[in-house]
Amino acid sequence: MMLEVIKAGPQTTVQDLGRFGARHLGVCRAGAMDALALTVANRLVGNPADAAALEITLPPAGFRLLRDGMLALAGADCQALLDDTPVWPGWRTAFRAGQTLRLQAPRFGMRAYLALDGGIAVPPLLGSASTDLMAGFGGLGGRALRDGDRLPLGEPLPPRRRLGVWLPRPGSQIRVCPGPEYPRLPKAARERMWNSPWQLTPSSNRMGYRLAGPGLQMDAAADMPSHAVLPGLIQLPPDGQPIVLMADAQATGGYPRLGMVVAADLWQLGQARLGGQLHFVESGRDDARQAELQLQRYLGRIERLCDEN
């Protein structure tokens, strides 16, 4: 029971919700850049939320399905076709052995997630099947997929009727809680941080998004000891152009910490397009908690709907 890669695309990897509990060893979290999309796709086909699926960055891509089963796509809308039949994001779709799934360039978003019932059955390492591209382990040989690869699938689940759910569309406004070094920004730099657009540069990747915009400089330069960092942290390197740490972020860093992206908005960052613009919105802890509650209520509705169908 396999999935054959016909066209891998620029970067397709096996991901789940990430590798937790090993950061003290210098191991990054990895996992889906858009954890919301991966979770919804998995639940639609009856998998646990953290089952291994495919993260497909900027298709086109194509796959041959070598057993019967169910699939779901979420994230970027890639005008997918199962043979000649459209497959819409957010829908549970049955497939037959021998059928081909093809994804085109996305109409919006950056990453599509393909979940299949039973999940991608690669062995977990340190508690996760996620691919760590920098360290070279997890997923399939610690690397992005190539044309001709074959991936093992888990045991198929009992078939279910067709079902669709509403998927939120990512926006460009990203809520941020100010960080420890934010008060060291002059007033004019603070205003630029919140009021200026930030462009996602081509040098961005799964480790971090490098942004281009008005330069931000601290009141006074100061050496900082190395400190723990996490996905969502906004760092300010000496060139004054912020870096937003993403899923494959290193465990420690030494740049000033301007802020932390609200956890409920990380999925939107995962769908940001290279060359696109982001706008930071100043937020607080109460706002962050409310945003997380709203996200969990949405996922709760998805869970109930999938359990009933």
Rank of each mutant, 00 (worst) to 15 (best):
E4G: 09
I6L: 15
I6A: 07
P10V: 03
Q11G: 04
V14S: 09
G18Q: 10
R23L: 04
R23N: 05
C28P: 12
G31Q: 11
A32N: 01
M33G: 05
P48E: 12
P48M: 04
A51I: 08
L58A: 07
R64D: 08
L65K: 14
L71T: 03
A72S: 14
A74L: 00
A80W: 04
T93Y: 02
A94G: 02
R96Q: 15
A97W: 04
G98A: 12
T100Q: 15
L103N: 06
Q104P: 01
A112I: 05
L116T: 14
D117P: 05
I120E: 03
A121M: 08
P123D: 05
P124F: 06
L140R: 12
G141F: 07
R143E: 03
G148S: 13
D149R: 05
L151K: 03
E155P: 08
G164V: 02
P178V: 03
P178Q: 01
Y182A: 08
P183E: 11
P186L: 12
K187L: 13
A189G: 03
E191H: 09
S196L: 01
T201K: 12
P202N: 10
L211K: 14
Q217K: 13
A220V: 15
A221G: 10
A221Q: 09
A222T: 00
S226F: 08
L233I: 12
L233G: 00
L236M: 13
P237K: 11
L245I: 09
M246C: 14
G253V: 06
L266R: 13
W267D: 00
W267C: 00
L269H: 11
L269K: 15
Q277Y: 13
V281H: 14
G284W: 08
D286C: 14
G300H: 02
R304G: 02
E308W: 01
